[in-house]
Amino acid sequence: MATDVQSATRDREDLAAFLLALRSERITDPRLLEAVESVPRRLFLPEGVVNAYENRSAPIACGETMHGALASVRLVAALEVQPSHRVLEIGTGSGYVTALLARLGAHVSSFDRYRGLVDAAGRRLRDIGITNISLFFEDGRDGFAGGAPFDRVIVHAAFASVPRQFLDQLGAHATMICAIGPGDGAQELLRLRKVGSRFEREPLGTVRYQPLAFGKADVL
Protein backbone atom coordinates (compact mmCIF):
# COMPACT_ATOMS: atom_id res chain seq x y z
CA MET A 1 0.00 0.00 0.00
CA ALA A 2 2.78 2.42 0.94
CA THR A 3 4.53 1.69 -2.35
CA ASP A 4 1.32 2.38 -4.31
CA VAL A 5 0.86 5.70 -2.49
CA GLN A 6 4.47 6.66 -3.15
CA SER A 7 4.12 5.76 -6.83
CA ALA A 8 0.92 7.79 -7.17
CA THR A 9 2.57 10.76 -5.46
CA ARG A 10 5.58 10.48 -7.75
CA ASP A 11 3.32 10.35 -10.81
CA ARG A 12 1.46 13.50 -9.72
CA GLU A 13 4.74 15.34 -9.22
CA ASP A 14 6.14 14.14 -12.53
CA LEU A 15 2.90 15.11 -14.31
CA ALA A 16 3.07 18.62 -12.84
CA ALA A 17 6.66 18.98 -14.07
CA PHE A 18 5.69 17.60 -17.47
CA LEU A 19 2.85 20.11 -17.88
CA LEU A 20 5.30 22.92 -17.15
CA ALA A 21 7.69 21.45 -19.74
CA LEU A 22 4.89 21.38 -22.31
CA ARG A 23 4.20 25.07 -21.77
CA SER A 24 7.90 25.81 -22.25
CA GLU A 25 7.59 23.94 -25.58
CA ARG A 26 4.73 26.31 -26.49
CA ILE A 27 2.18 23.53 -26.20
CA THR A 28 -0.51 25.54 -24.47
CA ASP A 29 -3.84 24.35 -25.91
CA PRO A 30 -6.02 24.01 -22.78
CA ARG A 31 -7.92 21.04 -24.25
CA LEU A 32 -4.71 19.13 -24.92
CA LEU A 33 -3.28 19.91 -21.49
CA GLU A 34 -6.52 18.74 -19.93
CA ALA A 35 -6.33 15.53 -21.96
CA VAL A 36 -2.77 14.91 -20.74
CA GLU A 37 -3.93 15.40 -17.15
CA SER A 38 -6.92 13.10 -17.57
CA VAL A 39 -5.06 10.15 -19.17
CA PRO A 40 -2.89 8.29 -16.61
CA ARG A 41 0.19 7.50 -18.68
CA ARG A 42 1.36 4.93 -16.08
CA LEU A 43 -1.52 2.68 -17.18
CA PHE A 44 -0.02 2.42 -20.69
CA LEU A 45 3.60 1.78 -19.67
CA PRO A 46 5.46 -1.45 -18.93
CA GLU A 47 6.39 -2.18 -15.34
CA GLY A 48 9.63 -0.74 -14.02
CA VAL A 49 9.45 2.74 -15.57
CA VAL A 50 10.20 5.18 -12.74
CA ASN A 51 9.11 8.46 -14.36
CA ALA A 52 5.95 7.93 -16.37
CA TYR A 53 6.45 11.27 -18.12
CA GLU A 54 10.04 10.98 -19.25
CA ASN A 55 10.68 11.51 -22.94
CA ARG A 56 12.15 8.10 -23.57
CA SER A 57 10.65 5.39 -25.74
CA ALA A 58 9.58 2.30 -23.85
CA PRO A 59 9.29 -1.34 -24.93
CA ILE A 60 5.79 -2.77 -25.03
CA ALA A 61 4.38 -6.18 -25.94
CA CYS A 62 4.90 -7.86 -29.33
CA GLY A 63 8.39 -6.41 -29.68
CA GLU A 64 7.04 -2.90 -30.31
CA THR A 65 7.89 0.39 -28.63
CA MET A 66 5.90 3.45 -27.59
CA HIS A 67 6.93 7.09 -27.96
CA GLY A 68 8.28 9.08 -25.03
CA ALA A 69 5.83 11.39 -23.30
CA LEU A 70 6.93 14.62 -24.97
CA ALA A 71 7.17 13.02 -28.40
CA SER A 72 3.64 11.65 -28.00
CA VAL A 73 2.14 14.98 -27.04
CA ARG A 74 4.04 16.82 -29.77
CA LEU A 75 2.49 14.51 -32.36
CA VAL A 76 -1.00 15.07 -31.01
CA ALA A 77 -0.44 18.82 -30.83
CA ALA A 78 0.74 18.87 -34.45
CA LEU A 79 -2.50 17.21 -35.57
CA GLU A 80 -4.59 20.11 -34.16
CA VAL A 81 -7.58 17.87 -33.42
CA GLN A 82 -10.91 19.63 -32.94
CA PRO A 83 -14.01 18.28 -31.14
CA SER A 84 -15.83 17.52 -34.40
CA HIS A 85 -12.93 15.65 -36.02
CA ARG A 86 -12.91 12.01 -37.04
CA VAL A 87 -9.41 10.61 -36.58
CA LEU A 88 -7.66 7.61 -38.14
CA GLU A 89 -4.63 6.17 -36.33
CA ILE A 90 -2.38 3.46 -37.79
CA GLY A 91 -0.44 1.78 -35.00
CA THR A 92 -2.46 1.59 -31.80
CA GLY A 93 0.47 0.33 -29.76
CA SER A 94 -0.18 0.73 -26.04
CA GLY A 95 -3.15 3.02 -26.72
CA TYR A 96 -1.72 6.14 -25.04
CA VAL A 97 -1.82 8.38 -28.12
CA THR A 98 -5.20 6.84 -28.98
CA ALA A 99 -6.48 7.99 -25.59
CA LEU A 100 -5.25 11.55 -26.08
CA LEU A 101 -6.80 11.72 -29.55
CA ALA A 102 -10.10 10.38 -28.24
CA ARG A 103 -10.19 13.02 -25.50
CA LEU A 104 -9.84 15.70 -28.19
CA GLY A 105 -11.88 14.45 -31.16
CA ALA A 106 -15.30 13.06 -32.00
CA HIS A 107 -14.19 9.50 -32.84
CA VAL A 108 -10.93 7.60 -33.33
CA SER A 109 -10.52 4.55 -35.56
CA SER A 110 -7.24 2.86 -34.63
CA PHE A 111 -5.54 -0.08 -36.36
CA ASP A 112 -2.79 -2.44 -35.24
CA ARG A 113 -1.47 -5.65 -36.75
CA TYR A 114 -0.97 -7.30 -33.34
CA ARG A 115 -4.09 -8.73 -31.69
CA GLY A 116 -2.38 -8.63 -28.29
CA LEU A 117 -1.84 -4.88 -28.56
CA VAL A 118 -5.38 -4.22 -29.78
CA ASP A 119 -6.93 -6.26 -26.96
CA ALA A 120 -4.74 -4.73 -24.24
CA ALA A 121 -5.27 -1.19 -25.50
CA GLY A 122 -9.02 -1.78 -25.57
CA ARG A 123 -9.00 -2.84 -21.92
CA ARG A 124 -6.97 0.19 -20.86
CA LEU A 125 -9.18 2.60 -22.76
CA ARG A 126 -12.33 1.10 -21.28
CA ASP A 127 -10.80 1.32 -17.80
CA ILE A 128 -10.52 5.10 -18.10
CA GLY A 129 -13.95 5.53 -19.63
CA ILE A 130 -13.01 6.19 -23.26
CA THR A 131 -15.74 4.93 -25.58
CA ASN A 132 -15.48 7.09 -28.72
CA ILE A 133 -13.05 4.68 -30.38
CA SER A 134 -13.09 1.71 -32.73
CA LEU A 135 -10.10 -0.64 -32.61
CA PHE A 136 -9.21 -2.94 -35.52
CA PHE A 137 -6.90 -5.92 -35.78
CA GLU A 138 -5.56 -5.01 -39.23
CA ASP A 139 -2.37 -3.43 -40.56
CA GLY A 140 -4.17 -0.31 -41.83
CA ARG A 141 -1.72 0.05 -44.71
CA ASP A 142 -4.47 1.21 -47.07
CA GLY A 143 -6.30 3.29 -44.52
CA PHE A 144 -9.97 2.69 -43.76
CA ALA A 145 -12.23 3.54 -46.67
CA GLY A 146 -15.28 2.29 -44.76
CA GLY A 147 -14.82 4.98 -42.11
CA ALA A 148 -13.90 7.85 -44.44
CA PRO A 149 -13.79 10.76 -44.72
CA PHE A 150 -11.33 11.54 -41.93
CA ASP A 151 -10.29 14.96 -40.72
CA ARG A 152 -7.01 13.79 -39.21
CA VAL A 153 -4.74 10.80 -39.84
CA ILE A 154 -1.62 9.76 -37.93
CA VAL A 155 0.63 6.84 -38.84
CA HIS A 156 3.23 5.61 -36.34
CA ALA A 157 5.39 4.06 -39.04
CA ALA A 158 7.35 5.04 -42.14
CA PHE A 159 6.39 4.99 -45.82
CA ALA A 160 8.94 4.87 -48.63
CA SER A 161 7.07 7.70 -50.38
CA VAL A 162 4.04 9.92 -49.78
CA PRO A 163 1.07 7.54 -49.29
CA ARG A 164 -1.32 8.92 -51.87
CA GLN A 165 -3.77 6.08 -51.21
CA PHE A 166 -4.98 8.09 -48.22
CA LEU A 167 -5.94 11.18 -50.25
CA ASP A 168 -9.43 9.98 -51.14
CA GLN A 169 -10.12 9.07 -47.50
CA LEU A 170 -9.40 12.59 -46.25
CA GLY A 171 -11.97 15.33 -46.04
CA ALA A 172 -11.39 18.82 -47.39
CA HIS A 173 -8.47 20.57 -45.68
CA ALA A 174 -7.67 17.43 -43.68
CA THR A 175 -4.23 16.74 -42.20
CA MET A 176 -2.08 13.62 -42.08
CA ILE A 177 1.13 13.05 -40.12
CA CYS A 178 3.54 10.28 -41.11
CA ALA A 179 7.22 9.59 -41.70
CA ILE A 180 8.69 9.32 -45.21
CA GLY A 181 12.02 7.70 -45.95
CA PRO A 182 14.06 4.49 -46.00
CA GLY A 183 13.25 1.77 -43.52
CA ASP A 184 16.87 1.39 -42.42
CA GLY A 185 17.71 5.01 -41.61
CA ALA A 186 16.44 8.42 -40.64
CA GLN A 187 13.12 9.59 -42.08
CA GLU A 188 11.41 12.94 -42.37
CA LEU A 189 8.32 13.39 -40.25
CA LEU A 190 5.80 15.31 -42.35
CA ARG A 191 2.51 17.06 -41.82
CA LEU A 192 0.60 16.61 -45.06
CA ARG A 193 -2.32 18.98 -45.67
CA LYS A 194 -4.86 18.04 -48.30
CA VAL A 195 -5.33 20.80 -50.85
CA GLY A 196 -7.65 19.71 -53.63
CA SER A 197 -6.20 16.53 -55.09
CA ARG A 198 -2.70 16.93 -53.68
CA PHE A 199 -0.75 17.17 -50.44
CA GLU A 200 1.16 20.20 -49.20
CA ARG A 201 4.18 19.04 -47.21
CA GLU A 202 5.41 20.59 -43.98
CA PRO A 203 8.49 19.04 -42.29
CA LEU A 204 8.24 18.43 -38.55
CA GLY A 205 11.67 16.92 -37.89
CA THR A 206 13.70 13.76 -38.24
CA VAL A 207 12.61 10.40 -36.80
CA ARG A 208 13.52 6.73 -37.00
CA TYR A 209 10.33 4.73 -37.39
CA GLN A 210 9.90 1.15 -38.49
CA PRO A 211 8.46 0.71 -42.02
CA LEU A 212 4.74 0.06 -42.03
CA ALA A 213 4.45 -3.74 -42.10
CA PHE A 214 2.14 -5.82 -44.28
CA GLY A 215 -0.61 -8.01 -42.89
CA LYS A 216 -1.69 -9.23 -39.50
CA ALA A 217 0.99 -10.74 -37.30
CA ASP A 218 1.00 -14.55 -37.41
CA VAL A 219 1.38 -14.74 -33.63
CA LEU A 220 0.82 -12.35 -30.72
Rank of each mutant, 00 (worst) to 15 (best):
S72D: 10
G171N: 10
S94Q: 01
A69L: 07
A172D: 11
I60N: 08
S72Q: 03
L189A: 05
A77E: 15
Y53Q: 08
R115S: 15
H107T: 11
A69Y: 08
V207I: 07
D11I: 09
A35Y: 00
S94W: 08
V36R: 02
R26P: 00
G143D: 02
H156F: 13
V49H: 08
A16I: 07
V153C: 10
P83N: 05
A78T: 03
S94G: 04
V49Q: 06
V219I: 11
S72E: 13
L190V: 11
E89S: 04
L75G: 01
I177S: 09
A148S: 14
A21K: 14
R26A: 11
P211I: 01
C178G: 02
D127K: 14
R23G: 00
P211D: 06
V219S: 05
M1W: 11
P40W: 07
H67R: 09
I154E: 04
A106E: 15
L125S: 04
R201H: 10
V195T: 12
I154M: 14
P163W: 02
S109N: 09
R152V: 02
P203Y: 10
Y114M: 01
S38V: 07
G48Q: 07
F18G: 07
V97E: 13
S94P: 07
P203E: 04
L204K: 00
R191E: 09
L220A: 14
E80A: 13
F166K: 03
P40S: 06
L125F: 01
L100P: 09
A99Q: 05
R113A: 02
L45A: 06
E25C: 12
S134D: 14
F199N: 00
H85A: 05
Q169A: 03
F144A: 08
R152N: 04
L190N: 08
A179M: 04
R191T: 05
A213L: 15
A106L: 13
E25I: 10
R208H: 11
L88Q: 10
E25N: 12
D11T: 13
I154H: 13
R26G: 00
E13R: 13
D168F: 00
R141G: 04
M176K: 05
Q210A: 15
V219D: 02
A69M: 02
T65Q: 11
V153A: 12
S94D: 07
I177R: 11
A35I: 14
A102I: 08
G146A: 15
A17N: 11
L88H: 11
A78R: 08
L79R: 04
R123M: 09
A160T: 15
L20H: 10
S161E: 15
R115A: 14
A58Q: 15
R10F: 09
A16L: 08
P59H: 03
H156L: 13
A160R: 15
R86H: 14
D127M: 13
A16M: 03
L88W: 12
R193G: 06
P30V: 02
V87H: 02
A217S: 15
A157F: 01
L79I: 11
D151K: 10
T131L: 12
L20D: 12
V50T: 11
E13K: 15
F166N: 03
G68E: 08
L45Q: 01
P163S: 02
L70W: 03
S24Y: 04
G215Q: 01
L101V: 07
R115F: 10
D142H: 09
V108H: 03
V108Q: 06
E37P: 00
L170A: 05
R152M: 06
R41K: 06
I90S: 04
